[in-house]
């Protein structure tokens, strides 16, 4: 960039003005549509805003945050968010990588896998949640309910009992998004250089050694970016859980995202709901900050 400006000299006068004209509309719209509501959110997190009891509305100071600290339901939701995110991301990466490695070995049928994998990704999460709630998990109707009983196990109330409900929403999320990891890994595997494998084969490295010492390090950037992207989506997951369990039974599958939503739109306590949403924002930024930090030094190492 620098060299180019020097080289071209006069031609590039007015470049900055042109660049500003091009970016200003987009950035202005972003400021108005994202930053302003976000500032409003932070402001309302310091207010009492309760549409059910508007006569109490007013400045609340840090009261919402103090309440949060002593709110067992908040800590419960936070714990569930952690379980939900870590387990679903781990499953997506593990299954996606395994499947990609398998499919790489069968070159003839790859297109079928690619087509099938694209389908869950393009479906609306709310529809995925509804399909699973009815067609797969509903008692005395769903396919999985039927299979469980057919195999001789006791009937499980998948969405109506606490632990099965949490497992169900994790499975649903994993079902929908593992294909994403699979497709990214498949593309990365296809772009790996073949000659390193040849060299390894001559060195008589076995399959496990080849995977551990060659494939995995080469895939590392793809794995890290998939973890980052999927963690963000997991932290903000909403529609599929909302459609399948509504966060229930009770609060058994209520991750922080749903708690903030319900506090605002069911209990109409917008001040406290805002504070919960701010907490989720802070957690998101912290998690992404940590993940990016973990990633950066390795890159330098690799390029040095």
């Amino acid at each position: 960039m620098q060299g180019r400006v020097n080289r071209e000299g006069g031609v590039h006068q007015g470049e900055t003005r042109f660049a500003l004209v091009l970016t200003a509309p987009g950035i202005l719209v972003l400021l108005v549509t994202t930053t302003f509501p976000l500032a409003y959110l932070v402001w309302s997190s310091f207010q009492t805003i309760n549409l059910a009891m508007p006569f109490l509305d007013g400045f609340a100071g840090v009261q919402n945050y103090v309440d949060m600290w002593y709110d067992a339901r908040f800590w419960h939701a936070l714990g569930l968010t952690g379980i939900y995110t870590v387990s679903s991301v781990t499953l997506q990466v593990a299954i996606g990588l395994g499947l990609a490695l398998m499919v790489m070995q069968i070159p003839a049928g790859q297109w079928i896998f690619r087509i099938v994998a694209i389908l869950p990704i393009v479906l609306a999460p709310v529809v995925v949640g509804l399909f699973w709630r009815t067609l797969m998990l509903a008692p005395n109707f769903g396919m999985i309910d039927f299979l469980v009983q057919w195999l001789g196990f006791e009937q499980i109330n998948w969405l109506g009992a606490p632990t099965p409900a949490l497992i169900s929403v994790i499975v649903i999320h994993t079902w929908q998004w593992t294909p994403f990891a699979f497709l990214v890994f498949l593309a990365s595997l296809a772009s790996l250089p073949g000659d390193v494998y040849e060299a390894a084969r001559i060195d008589r490295a076995n399959a496990l050694q080849r995977f551990w010492h060659i494939t995995l390090p080469l895939l590392r950037p793809a794995i890290v970016i998939v973890i980052i992207m999927r963690a963000m989506i997991s932290l903000h997951a909403f529609a599929a859980i909302f459609a399948a369990t509504g966060g229930g039974p009770g609060t058994a599958s209520e991750i922080l995202n749903l708690y903030a939503f319900k506090t605002s739109f069911v209990e109409l306590n917008f001040g406290y709901g805002s504070a919960l949403a701010v907490a989720l924002l802070v957690i998101t930024m912290a998690v992404s900050g940590i993940l990016f930090y973990v990633r950066t030094p390795r890159r330098r190492e690799a390029s040095a």
Partner: peptide, 18 residues
């Protein structure tokens, strides 16, 4: 980039009020 990290629930609350 940072605007992509805002949780949707953190936008739907202020947008509803606004």
């Amino acid at each position: 980039l940072a605007t992509q990290m805002v949780p949707p629930v953190g936008l739907v609350i202020p947008y509803f009020l606004i």
